[in-house]
């Protein structure tokens, strides 16, 4: 990523590029485990969406569709809070990780 010179920066330390942290892929922090989404068991309660600190639950239309591994840090809260007896999100082992932490 090219870094601006002092002349190129907006005055007053302002960042005008709202929400550009989506380029930081926090999924690279994951180590050892990741959630797995089992669609047919999902009751669409949205608790996983509600309780994911890193906004890593994929929602399409009005349905939860899975996990966005670009952001998922593997904390496991989604799985713990998944209400059905047979959970729609389970934690599984993960060997390889994403190589890059930045979308650019």
């Amino acid at each position: 990523m090219k870094k601006e010179t002092w002349k190129e920066l907006t005055i007053g330390t302002i960042n005008l590029d709202a929400g550009n942290s989506v380029k930081n892929l926090t999924g690279t922090w994951r180590s050892g485990k990741k959630p797995q989404f089992i669609e047919e068991k999902c009751i669409q309660c949205f608790f996983c969406w509600l309780y994911c600190p890193h906004s890593a639950i994929l929602v399409e239309g009005d349905e939860v569709k899975g996990i966005n591994y670009d952001y998922c840090t593997g904390c496991g809260m989604c799985s713990v809070e998944c209400p059905p007896k047979e959970k729609a999100i389970i934690m599984v082992k993960e060997e390889a990780k994403l190589a890059e932490g930045d979308a650019e």
């Binding site: 601006e4 010179t5 002349k7 920066l9 005055i11 007053g12 330390t13 302002i14 960042n15 005008l16």
Partner: peptide, 27 residues
Amino acid sequence: YPLLDTSRKMTVGPIDFTDYYFEHKRN
């Protein structure tokens, strides 16, 4: 860059690490 112009969703007063603080101070 007035905050009250809420159509522009600015972040004012962010944290700089070693890669930006110096440039912001020079600015």
